[in-house]
């Protein structure tokens, strides 16, 4: 009998322990390694950094760590500009996403109930098709001799090809396009639950639709606005594929900088330092996001 309760406790304990251990080993430990390597020096060796950890010489190992890479990050203003430009691009994209996403989510929430699940499925469906392919599709559209130019010339709107590809505008279009479901779904989730009688009451009391939108709809949709904005802003800051394929060589973004330090310059310690920098920029938004999400899931009826 006693033995049975022991196995029971063991199986019960395994439920949290297994995923906990997995994430600890494959998520937490790797971060500590990034931190360690960001304090190392590059070397022409395998692996391409020094010092390499050894149990026999822990003191020597710790002594060989320094903050040289971070000094380099502060001295060369390339990284500062890349960080600033990433935050700016992600911020503008998030605003554009709100502008584009809100009317869509609002329309979905007001649609007859029997159509709503179809509308939600239609928003999610593009998300299931490859991200890379959806970005790739825009190259053919935005190219100087591409489909957008062809269409606009055909309509007589323009006579010269328009240059969008390889500019920051293409990056905005790409981010808005790729992240739209992440903005629309949280917005829709809060707007759908909204009580229409509040709006009616405001209108009856003589409020204009515009004013009741700002004083009632927006405050009530705030949890969705915050969740959607963070869900778009955080990954957009570190975005690599979109600026790389659509943005051209001028578009400076920190994720791209990390990629080139790693793959082109093969400077692993510097790439790690850039990763730490990116993480410092994002730590606050990530913590807020985690709290918002955990609360949203736990207070659900």
């Amino acid at each position: 009998m006693k033995e049975r309760s022991f196995t029971k406790r063991l199986t019960a304990g395994l439920v949290p322990a297994v995923p906990y251990l997995w994430l600890g080993v494959f998520f937490l430990v790797p971060f500590l390694i990034v931190l360690k390597i960001s304090l190392s020096d590059p070397a022409v060796a395998q692996p391409p950094y020094r010092p390499v950890f050894e149990w026999s010489d822990i003191a020597g190992f710790i002594g060989a760590l320094d903050v040289e890479n971070f000094e380099l990050l502060t001295q060369d203003d390339l990284y500062f500009r890349a960080t600033l430009s990433s935050v700016r691009i992600a911020g503008i994209s998030t605003l554009l996403l709100l502008l584009v996403g809100f009317p869509i989510a609002y329309g979905m929430a007001r649609a007859p109930e029997r159509h709503r699940s179809l509308l939600v499925a239609l928003i999610i469906l593009p998300f299931w098709t490859s991200f890379l392919i959806r970005i790739y599709a825009w190259i053919a559209i935005l190219k100087p001799e591409g489909l957008l130019t062809q269409a606009l010339t055909g309509l007589g709107v323009i006579s010269e090809p328009i240059e969008i590809l390889n500019t920051e505008w293409a990056v905005y279009i790409g981010i808005v396009y790729a992240y739209l479901p992440f903005m629309v779904l949280p917005l829709y989730a809060t707007l759908e639950k909204m009580d229409d009688t509040l709006l009616e009451a405001a209108l009856d009391l003589g409020s204009t639709p515009w004013r009741s939108f700002w004083t009632i709809t927006v405050p009530l949709a705030m949890p969705g606005i915050i969740a959607g904005s963070l869900l778009c802003f955080i990954p957009a800051v570190g975005e690599f594929v979109i600026p790389d394929l659509l943005g051209g060589s001028e578009t400076l973004m920190i994720g791209r900088q990390l990629w080139s330090e790693f793959f082109s310059n093969r400077d692993w310690p510097l790439a790690s330092a850039v990763a730490i920098l990116l993480l410092i920029v994002l730590v606050l938004p990530i913590v807020i996001y985690r709290d918002v999400e955990a609360r949203r899931l736990e207070t659900r009826p």
């Binding site: 600890g24 990034v34 692996p47 990954p235 690599f240 790690s272 990116l278 990530i286 985690r290």
Partner: peptide
């Protein structure tokens, strides 16, 4: 810590996750 580890990878820029796992596998 557990909820943090569950929610963080979803929003973490992929370049960081990719790099950190690679460095782990090398280590």
């Amino acid at each position: 810590l557990f909820t943090g580890m569950v929610y963080a990878p979803m929003v973490m820029p992929e370049v960081i996750t990719g790099l950190s796992l690679l460095l782990f596998f090398v280590a």
